[in-house]
Amino acid sequence: MPAGSGGSWVGRDGGGVEVSRHGFGGAPIGNLFHGVSEEQARATVDAAWDAGVRLFDTAPHYGLGLSERRLGAALKDRSGYVLSTKVGRLLVPASSSSGGRDEQGFDVSADLQRVWDFSGDGVRRSLEESLGRLGLPAVDIALIHDPDDHMEQALAEAYPALAELRAQGVVKAIGVGMNQWQAPLRFVQETSIDVVMLAGRYTLLDQSGLPLLEECARRGVRVLAAGVFNSGILATPRPTGTYNYEPAPASVVERATRIAEICEHHDVTLPQAAMAFPLRHPAVASVVLGARSPEEITANAALLSRPVPEAMWDELMSEGLLPKE
């Protein structure tokens, strides 16, 4: 069975969409950190499709629209997928035409700039412009993106605009995407969103988002788990790289190393466990994994398809490395 199969429903009141348990994160094909060629970006999406992935996520933020353009082109002649994009940042011509590079982590020319806008008009404009870049007639899921410093406007203006678009059938599900759990909890408690994309806060090393997941489970809101490798430390069989995009503290490396040792004792790799862990929670519908090459897609899909023995989770809990269920 392909790793992407085994769908889960996202939505309420008879609406919504079915998402694959393996989702594709589109930031890397927007040239996150370093460039990806057009050919490699297309081959990566093709590999995801062949692996059974049917949930594809992108955003205007990713490469100043490059991710949306590339993903839309790759999906143009396909059907049966679920496409997610985000609102909250409008792309406008850059005030300076110096020919510099984007300073927000994407290797693209800074001919555009991001402008925060969580107004109702901003939401509608954002979606319209996203469809233009995607070259597609519709998206399925619309997420309010990173409203950390704009919570009141996002709740009072962006959410009602998305709720109206959902009621009109323009989008099938709505929600919020963030790398913290406290603000999404407000959305879950104060609105009728369908889905939360939570990055990095429910992983093998960080379960701080558990209160949000518990509330989502109580209210029927589904979670798309992103950032499951905590920016890299969990992406290899032995812990390497960064933790939450910064050098990993020694205590975190030590904890990750002990987790890796227990995983190996049960013939499981650290990245395999990192992908499997969020899916154990009933609120989690899909694990969304960014990828920039077909090889990454193939490797992740193979690991996701392998069962993880319950005894491994039991040992991690008994060692105090995971909370007892």
Rank of each mutant, 00 (worst) to 15 (best):
Gly320Met: 04
Gly100Leu: 10
Ala47Gly: 07
Glu319Asn: 07
Ala256Arg: 01
Gly200Met: 10
His61Ala: 12
Lys86Leu: 09
Cys263Gln: 09
Glu152Ser: 15
Phe277Ser: 03
Ile297Asp: 03
Gly227Ile: 02
Ala51Val: 00
Glu164Gln: 14
Gly80Met: 01
Pro307Lys: 07
Asn31Pro: 10
Leu90Trp: 07
His145Asp: 14
His150Ile: 03
Glu295Ser: 02
Asp102Ile: 01
Glu18Ile: 04
Val221Asn: 03
Gln180Glu: 14
Ile262His: 01
Leu131Gly: 02
Ala158Trp: 04
Gln182Phe: 00
Lys324Thr: 11
Thr257Met: 08
Leu32Cys: 08
Val284Glu: 11
Arg133Pro: 07
Ser286His: 01
Val288Thr: 00
Tyr245Asp: 11
Pro307Val: 06
Val92Leu: 15
Ala235Leu: 10
Ala276His: 14
Ala283Cys: 05
Asn179Lys: 00
Gly63Gln: 06
Trp116Lys: 14
Thr242Asn: 14
Ala154Phe: 12
Met151Gln: 15
Asp117Gly: 05
Leu279Met: 08
Ala302Trp: 09
Met317Ala: 15
Gln113Ile: 06
Pro278Gly: 02
Leu270Ile: 10
Leu204Pro: 03
Gly100Cys: 11
Pro323Phe: 11
Val10Asp: 05
Gly14Trp: 04
Met1Pro: 08
Ala154Gln: 12
Arg201His: 12
Phe33Tyr: 15
Ser96Gly: 13
Ser208Cys: 09
Arg133Gln: 10
Gly11Ala: 13
Gly11Thr: 04
Trp313Arg: 00
Ala51Arg: 05
Pro294Ile: 05
Trp9Tyr: 09
Arg70Gly: 01
Arg21Ala: 06
Leu112Ser: 04
Arg306Lys: 15
Ser231Glu: 13
Glu103Trp: 05
Leu155Phe: 07
Val287Met: 03
Asp13Thr: 11
Asp77Val: 11
Thr85His: 08
Leu279Asp: 05
Gly7Thr: 15
Ala48Leu: 05
Gly7Asp: 14
Glu261Asp: 12
Gly220Ile: 11
Leu212Gln: 04
Thr191Glu: 06
Leu212Asn: 13
His145Trp: 01
Leu112Gln: 14
Tyr159Leu: 13
Arg42Ile: 02
His265Trp: 12
Arg255Lys: 06
Arg70Thr: 00
Glu128Lys: 12
Leu64Ala: 00
Ala110Phe: 03
Ser251His: 15
Val36Ala: 01
Trp313Ala: 00
Ala167Lys: 06
Gln104Glu: 15
Ile193Asn: 00
